[in-house]
Amino acid sequence: MRTFRYERASGDEAAVAAMAASPGARYLGGGTNLVDLMKLGVESPDVLVDVSRLPHTSVEHTGPGGLLIGAALSNSDLAADHTVRTRYPVLSQALLAGASGQLRNAATVGGNLLQRTRCPYFQDPGKPCNKRQPGTGCPAREGVHRNLAVLGASEHCVATHPSDMAVALAALDAGVHVLSGAATRTIPVTELLRLPGDEPERDSVLRHGDLITHVELSAVPEAAHSLYRKVRDRASYSFALVSVAAALETEGGVVRRVRLALGGVAHRPWRARTAEERLLGEPATAEAFAHAVDAELAPAEPLRDNAFKVPLVRNVAVSALSDLAARQSDGTARLPEAR
């Protein structure tokens, strides 16, 4: 790890200014990913601008039933928030499915969004990686890629985004408040994080110095009927193989509102809009869910060792939607019986 200068930001503008002054600077939030990457030599900032003490640590109710979440709030605090637990259970569940209690206490909302892929090649500076060092190649395509992308990858990069929280936020159409220079803008989380394309080194659309200050949730009535399912290699404390964030509202056994996002399958949380569109007005049955998810997954291009992710995420999405359907009071949805 290189030596670095440390600055504690006194306010948002000061933070942005400090970053502007140093092209090699990085924001420090909870540090749970950045410190790790600095030790590995993957990140080598010469200045750290500490934004963890900026006063963005609350969850505020906004006018029409939405929430404004401070970017410096810890993952555990957000997961424990009463409103989040009751109105956006998918978000609380996603947060609690991530990492460990210790890490959630330290990790911030903003940092969680911007965490880097856990691709083994990205994390090893002794190997080529287009994300870490553009133009060096992507050994993952032919190498070890069991937990890498099956959707939206490019020849340059097959990384997956590791966040659970971001999958829930994608399903909820969260907006991310970004202070960029002197201007604040709101970027939908589904657009904040990008696909690798020809620029795998860019995880997000943010530019150097852009500061995430808040995450905004608008009123999403169907989010009251939402859940997060995560499949992983051990029962806790590991990254998703695949995950599903789903919200569903049915009426008379018919899908009225649906939200579906898939994790662990792409360079960003994968909002399953094709499946959603197919489901609107359809009967809330396992068969309909399966057809819709299949359509979503049709463009999947798995690699040698991760093809299992396609049926896996399909099963989980169908099961999650089926469970939500079964919970609806109209009682017309039927769950498949185990043999």
């Binding site: 440390y6 420090l28 909870g30 540090g31 749970t32 410190v35 790790d36 030790k39 590995l40 750290l48 810890s74 555990s76 460990s100 209690g101 210790q102 890490l103 206490n105 330290a106």
Partner: peptide
């Protein structure tokens, strides 16, 4: 030393954290 085992856990202002990841 990378927040992957928990052996370094301490309480920071009352909250458990991996001290290996805190500058």
């Amino acid at each position: 030393d990378h927040g992957q085992c928990g052996a370094c856990t301490v309480l920071v202002d009352g909250l458990r954290m991996n001290s290996c990841l805190l500058f």
